[in-house]
């Protein structure tokens, strides 16, 4: 019998701690598959964030560092400068990357740092109990926007991919989603391209992945996937925002 489904070699066999139906796990798997396919496990160094993915260092079969909240791009910069032949990636949530670590990601991108960032946008602070994130949609209720995000008082969501695509340092910036199989396939292609561009020395790369948080959204996994498509995708359109091989914008 031919095995058609197997765990990627770059994922440990430790069961992840993610809530059932959370798409963090899928995104981990995609990264691990890409690492396997590119054969880079022995030179990859990952940087875990502070957020639900704080324990990511337990799940990947490669060297890992755990960064302070938001500082993963700075930590990755330090690693990459010391080990230029390594393949360095960060895995960061929206609170981590777009709020407390906004300066770090913008400047790593502007420097064209040869790292790959996987940016998991679930529009909420998952780890700390469902508070408002910089990417929380207008009107959405969270534990710190109990009346719904009021843009007059709480401002607007940040579209990270669009913002970073205005810089000259990035080589590849894309927004993908993992709410269905077709999109998962596309997401993996984007992550692979990002790693390939890093290896080829083309520049900074980032893949923003729209992700779910059934637990703090208070929705079933299925409803959560629907919310990604219905509510998030109109505000955060999918596509390539920068690809220096293909010219600007999709």
């Amino acid at each position: 019998m031919v095995k058609v489904f197997d765990c990627p070699k770059s994922l440990t066999d430790m069961p992840t701690h993610y809530c059932p139906g959370c798409t963090h796990g899928i995104i981990h798997r995609l990264i691990a598959e890409v690492i396997d396919e590119l054969g880079i496990a022995d030179k990859a160094v990952g940087v875990a964030p502070v957020g639900c993915a704080v324990l990511a260092y337990n799940y990947f079969v490669c060297d890992m560092q755990e960064a302070a909240h938001g500082r993963a791009p700075a930590v990755a910069t330090g690693i990459k400068r010391v080990v230029p032949e390594g393949v360095v990636f960060t895995y960061q949530g929206d609170g981590d990357l777009a709020s407390i670590g906004c300066a770090e990601i913008v400047h790593a991108a502007a420097r064209g740092e040869l790292i790959t960032t996987v940016f998991v946008n679930n529009g909420i602070y998952g780890m700390t109990g469902g508070q408002m994130a910089p990417t929380t949609l207008p009107g959405d209720k969270t534990s710190t926007s109990p009346y719904g995000r009021d843009t007059k008082k709480q401002g607007f969501p940040i579209r990270v991919s669009e913002m970073l695509a205005t810089l000259d340092g990035p080589a590849y910036i894309a927004r993908v989603s993992v709410h269905n199989v077709a999109n998962i396939v596309k997401a993996k292609r984007a992550i692979k391209k990002a790693f390939e561009y890093q290896i080829a020395g083309k520049g900074f790369t980032l893949v923003e992945v729209l992700s779910t948080c059934p637990t703090n959204w208070g929705l079933t996994p299925k409803e959560s996937l629907e919310k990604v498509q219905r509510d998030m995708m109109p505000y955060f359109p999918l596509g390539d925002y920068k690809d220096i091989e293909a010219g600007e914008k999709k």
């Binding site: 560092q65 700075a74 930590v75 910069t77 330090g78 690693i79 400068r81 390594g86 770090e104 400047h107």
Partner: peptide, 16 residues
């Protein structure tokens, strides 16, 4: 871009 970043770059480099 800041002292915060600088020390975290040091963290990464020292860790490597």
């Amino acid at each position: 871009e800041s002292e915060v970043s600088a020390i975290n770059m040091v963290y990464g480099a020292a860790g490597a």
